[in-house]
């Protein structure tokens, strides 16, 4: 697997709504820009060999970097695949919607839920939003959140941007009633 570029973004949210966020909320994103494993091959019926060749290695590269960048225990997480315009969205989905990829992150974060995801096709420098949910219970409403990302100069038409995102807590100033109170 060739990685052209790795981008790490760490956001520290000190205030929201005019009030201090204490403790500071941290959100980390790590994105790798790789060649689309199926570039130039036309419509490939069986994606499994490409998945086997790339997905696990990619998870192994990204997951520890997110945890290191976060620098604190993770409480919410999500993932992204942005496919360059010569590829299929299915190519991005193939690489992130497999346990071979996601288990690296779940293991590193002591997490158990499925990772919410964004998959789309875009030009280099496309802006995308990664959804994050709670790491052990996806119904916990306080932790539903989104982080906005743009990787400069990627993905090129034959590339894919694969990203993982983690957050140390729920939304800053979250104050919605729990889901159970509506039942």
């Amino acid at each position: 697997m060739r990685i052209r570029k790795v981008t790490t973004i760490v956001e520290e949210i000190l205030g929201e709504g005019g009030r201090e966020v204490d403790p500071t909320a941290r959100v980390a994103v790590v994105a790798a820009v790789i060649d689309n494993p199926w570039a130039g091959e036309g419509f490939v019926e069986d994606l499994a060999p490409g998945i086997d060749a790339v997905a696990s290695d990619l998870g192994a590269v990204l997951a520890p970097r997110v945890m290191e960048a976060l620098g604190a225990p993770l409480e919410a997480y999500g993932k992204a695949a942005i496919v360059g315009i010569d590829g299929e969205i299915e190519h991005g989905s193939a690489l992130i919607h497999t346990l071979k990829f996601g288990n690296h992150f779940r293991d590193a974060a002591n997490a158990s839920t499925l990772l919410p995801a964004v998959e789309k096709r875009g030009l280099a420098g496309a802006t995308f939003d990664i959804p994050l949910k709670h790491f052990t219970d996806a119904t916990i409403r306080s932790h539903h959140q989104t982080t906005e990302v743009r990787i400069a100069d990627a993905p090129h038409p034959h590339e894919i941007v694969i990203a993982l995102a983690g957050a140390t807590r729920g939304r800053p100033q979250q104050r919605l009633a729990d889901l159970s109170t509506e039942r």
Binding site: R2, R4, T7, I9, V10
Partner: peptide, 14 residues
């Protein structure tokens, strides 16, 4: 008055 700080690290390998 600082509301947010973000840090971007870009590692170009090729």
């Amino acid at each position: 008055g600082v509301r947010r700080i973000f840090t971007v690290l870009q590692e170009v390998r090729e």
